[in-house]
């Protein structure tokens, strides 16, 4: 029997019970939130038992207004055999953005996690080489967080008012 969102949801609820919350199914993609300390357990179970052996994407989102859970790490897993996708979310506070690394399960997670660290400052615990990858090594902030502006803050060459960029566009 083909794996569908309903069956998968049932199976995961049976296995993990209350740990998985905020079930959602926008545009046909099953989404679930898992606690930060259990993320590897869930992913490993999905890898071993449910055939989600392909990590499509890993990224993070910054929600400054969600106090206590500002950063959200998003995993997109794919079961290539059943051809079904799953989105997993982990929320962590911005003061202590610790998430366990998925590099032990997926080799491909290595750079994706480094990129996420580089842009949003998620601390992937256990990552073999969690250093900046895209930005210059000297950078001392995480530029994709919402409080930082797009333009270089030290820039002097362009007058913001002349370019209509003084506001919050």
């Amino acid at each position: 029997m083909a794996l569908t969102n309903e069956i998968l949801k049932q199976k995961l609820s049976d296995k993990f019970g209350e740990q998985l919350t905020e079930w959602d199914e926008q545009y046909g993609l099953l989404t679930v939130r898992m606690p930060a300390e259990a993320n590897l357990k869930v992913i490993q179970h999905l890898y071993d038992a449910e055939g989600f052996q392909f990590l499509t994407d890993l990224t993070a989102v910054h929600y400054p207004e969600r106090t206590g859970e500002e950063l959200c790490v998003v995993y997109h897993l794919h079961n290539l055999v059943e051809n079904i996708r799953l989105r997993l979310k982990v929320y962590v506070p911005v003061e202590k953005p610790d998430v366990y690394t998925a590099t032990k399960i997926f080799s491909g997670a290595n750079w994706m996690e480094r990129e996420t660290y580089d842009n949003l400052g998620i601390n992937f615990v256990g990552h073999p080489n969690l250093t900046r990858i895209l930005n210059v090594d000297e950078m001392d902030y995480f530029p994709l967080r919402k409080e930082y502006q797009m333009e270089d803050p030290t820039r002097l060459d362009k007058d913001d008012e002349m370019f209509g960029r003084g506001g919050s566009i």
């Binding site: 994407d57 997109h76 989105r87």
Partner: peptide
């Protein structure tokens, strides 16, 4: 929230 992937020339180009 939407994820959409297309088969780019080099592989799955996804937009989250």
């Amino acid at each position: 929230e939407v994820y959409h992937g297309v088969e780019g020339a080099n592989g799955e180009v996804g937009y989250y």
